[in-house]
Design a protein around this nucleic acid. Structure first.
Lengths: 179, 179
DNA sequence: ACCTGAACACCGTTCAAGT
DNA sequence: ACCTGAACACCGTTCAAGT
């Protein structure tokens, strides 16, 4: 709140004429960020391409705002119009792609869970898996870390691609018809 | 720090004789929590069963400590012995199951991202997806939410099962041999 | 309607002083 | 070696007083 007030060149207490709490501000920020998530491929491209485009932009938006993740993950969607608009487009995309009604929310939540977790990875230090002085007592892990270093991709991106492909394949098999 | 000091019946400043910062305390807590994650099925059960057991216990441990997730997701693993021990067992399990060396870390990170995101869902309010007054402007989403309500499972569990199955199937296809 | 400034109850952390 | 208590620079929030 102090930082926001400074940005607006106003006393912190002045903010409380416009919002009733910090939580309130976070809800407004969340709703704005959701409007930045790209849902334009739903209806315009095959389901798996649309999910991929949506998931990447969703992850990238929140990778730049990780402190919001704990808030959003638990924040009711009520009265957040942009957020609801995103869910509406995605839900329709899943239904049109042949998903059974009763699995759509679970499928979206599963993807979102993966997306939020992956957003953190983007901000993690490159050497997060450095075993340090304990390298010789963890030979398998150390070898795996060394083996992964060869890739051109950032570690977070390699994991995101792998997981997203798996989720799209696995969830896609729930569909009744192709689309 | 204040709460911890109270629990120990000591002044907050006394803690700094034992740790050098709050971050330090969090690392110790993280390491302890990691020792609670069940890796016992690796080597004792088929790979997919072992992953399922590990993922469920991992999610459940952190669902009860969600404030730690932003910290852990970004905390270097160096000098966290229990954490390294967990990664060592899991890495060996993946290698023995036929995973190519250079994909093991990515596969584990993808699973962890999903697990951390899913841990938040457990703590979310039941009505997090209630569209409220905007129900009629979001018909597809509202129908999907209503359609999901029929399940006996908690919403977080239904999504976790769905996503975990998809990840296990998709990642499992990277293996060179069955095990 | 919207602002300021003082105040309150909290944070994490430092440091001089004790035992 | 480990503690206390005062102090510091911060939080989010309330509220009386202003315009």
């Amino acid at each position: 709140m102090a930082a926001l007030a400074k940005l607006l060149e106003v006393a912190p207490s002045a903010l409380y004429n416009h919002v009733s709490s910090k939580q309130d501000v976070l809800l407004l920020v969340e709703d704005h960020l959701m409007s930045l998530v790209d849902v334009s491929s739903f209806g315009a491209a095959p389901w798996d391409d649309a999910v991929r485009t949506w998931a990447w932009s969703y992850r990238n938006v929140f990778a730049e705002h990780t402190p919001l993740i704990p808030v959003i993950a638990v924040l009711p969607v009520t009265d957040a119009p942009q957020t609801l608009a995103m869910y509406e487009t995605v839900s329709k995309g899943f239904l049109d792609a042949g998903f059974p009604q009763e699995r759509i929310i679970s499928a979206i939540v599963a993807l979102e869970s993966f997306i939020f977790g992956s957003a953190y990875d983007v901000t993690a230090p490159e050497d997060i898996f450095d075993p340090g002085t304990m390298a010789e007592s963890t030979p398998y892990f150390t070898a795996a870390v060394r083996g992964a270093a060869g890739t051109a991709l950032r570690a977070a991106d390699a994991a995101f691609i792998l997981g997203l492909d798996a989720l799209i394949d696995g969830l896609g098999s729930l569909r009744r018809e192709a689309d």
